[in-house]
Amino acid sequence: MLLQAVHHIAIICTDYHRSKTFYTDVLGLQVIREVYRAERDSWKLDLALGEQYIIELFSFPDPPARVSRPEASGLRHLAFAVADITAAVQQLQDKGVETEPIRLDPHTQQRFTFFSDPDGLPLELYEVRD
């Protein structure tokens, strides 16, 4: 098996239009394509970050809730790299998104923080400096 890269991350949301607004207007991801699948009563939104295809956002009627506490088994969180975490946090807060206090990773000495998408999915901003 010769893995090349992560291709995409699939997210199922409970309110398609609210989540679409969050990922595009708040986080700034670009829409690649949007498809309504009538046979499944489901939307599928492909999103990119810059030139990279990154997220498939799905909606389904009445999806079951999933545990999303950081220490639950399974996917812990989705992290986005930023050059200036202070500015990124301010941009989120200006759009009404609550963030945790910025912390310092004791192993890498990089700064990071967490926030949530509209369904409570934990998201992280991780400062990556040259």
Rank of each mutant, 00 (worst) to 15 (best):
F22H: 03
A81N: 11
T24I: 08
E51K: 13
H77W: 00
S68M: 11
I55G: 05
F58G: 06
A10W: 02
L123R: 07
H107S: 14
D84T: 08
L45M: 12
Q110N: 13
T14Y: 05
R66M: 15
G28E: 08
E124C: 00
H107Y: 14
E39H: 10
S68K: 11
F114V: 01
P118S: 09
L78D: 04
V82S: 08
I85E: 06
R66Y: 07
Q93K: 07
A38T: 11
S19V: 10
D15L: 03
E71M: 03
I102D: 09
Q52R: 14
S19H: 10
I11Y: 02
S68F: 02
D117M: 06
D117V: 06
G74P: 03
E34S: 13
Q93F: 01
D41Q: 15
D117S: 10
W43K: 05
S42H: 04
Q93V: 03
Q109S: 10
P106I: 04
T86C: 10
I32P: 00
G120K: 00
R18E: 15
M1F: 11
E51V: 11
T24M: 11
D117A: 11
L92S: 12
I55Y: 01
D105G: 00
D94G: 08
F80T: 02
L3H: 10
V26A: 01
T113G: 02
A88W: 02
E127H: 02
E39N: 13
H107M: 13
R66T: 14
L78V: 15
E51Y: 08
P70R: 12
E39P: 01
T113D: 00
S59V: 09
R33I: 05
D105M: 01
S59D: 12
Q90E: 15
A38K: 15
C13F: 06
P64L: 10
I9N: 11
I54Q: 04
Y126V: 09
